[in-house]
Design a protein around this nucleic acid. Structure first.
Lengths: 154, 154
DNA sequence: GTCCTAATGCGACCCGCTTGCAGTTGCATC
DNA sequence: GATGCAACTGCAAGCGGGTCGCATTAGGAC
């Protein structure tokens, strides 16, 4: 999960394009690598490395190494939703950011422009360019704030 | 670090008050406990449990257990600045929130009211009550955004 | 089909944090 | 001040997330 901060996202639309992109930079396409790529395309949301490993019957270390390659090439990225493992998504296909309720674990998926006003405000006041793609905004959803916050351990 | 989400902060001004508060709820004041409390008062910012353990020559497990007690009683809380260990601060004395640069690790300390406009905006649009005290706003400071982001491994 | 090296599986390991347990100690009571 | 007992401690083991070293396997250029 060691990645330079700003690898530009690479826009690819199917596994074959991703594979070609990798081949183009001299990498080999092992079956493990192909499986990870396909699983990311098949996933309907952020997935953990260990979930991928289980699902694909691969070694976790190999999955992590492949995810790192994909991140370095701008094909994937990961998010930290509160505590818990990093969750991986395709970078090109999905530029969403997240809100995370630390009461119940609910995740709100947002298109980046929906947070632009907030990002601008933070930038104007504090000079920080907020990136909610990697560390989302964490708080309590209305239900949990109302008190029946199903106190999660965290 | 397993704590119910909303323990109200207890306002105490010196170690003795904290100790009295704990005694009042039937807890004993061991030397380890006293040392942890005093170290939190002496600290000039968020500290990790292992730093406390080293500094005080205590077992880490004991430090963690004491910090958990303090959090349960509303005397302390912790923040997650990007990756890395949780960092502990006194709760009563210090209700600050944080901005964190994931390029260079810089931490901006803010009084809660400074983020209220942003909190309100998030609440109005998405119904989430953001709490930047536990998970801060993460992004890139102006220097790192400008490009010389001293690419930290993360 | 050969050959070379990238990538894999497997094991060990690191870090942050938790847990179980035997032994110690704070402190309430006498 | 001595006694008793549960709260607390140190120590060691364990767990989840992630990384690394190394011998072996297998892409793919020729």
């Amino acid at each position: 999960m060691t990645v330079a901060p700003d690898v530009p996202a690479l826009q690819v639309h199917d596994p074959e394009q991703a594979i070609e992109a990798l081949r183009g930079s001299g990498l080999r396409i092992s079956t493990a690598r192909r499986l990870v790529i396909e699983a990311l395309f098949a996933a309907d949301g952020p997935v953990s490395a260990s979930a991928l490993a289980r699902r694909l019957s691969l070694e976790e270390s190999s999955v992590y190494r492949n995810l790192e390659v994909l991140e370095q090439r701008g094909l994937a990225r990961h998010v930290h939703l509160g505590h818990g493992p990093g969750l991986y998504v395709l970078a090109g296909r999905d530029r969403t950011e997240f809100l995370y309720c630390e009461g119940c674990g609910a995740v709100t998926v947002l298109e980046p422009h929906e947070l632009d006003a907030i990002r601008d405000q933070i930038h104007d006041r504090f000079g920080l360019t907020a990136r909610f793609a990697h560390f989302p905004i964490v708080g309590l959803c209305s239900r949990c704030a109302a008190g029946d916050g199903r106190a999660h351990t965290h």
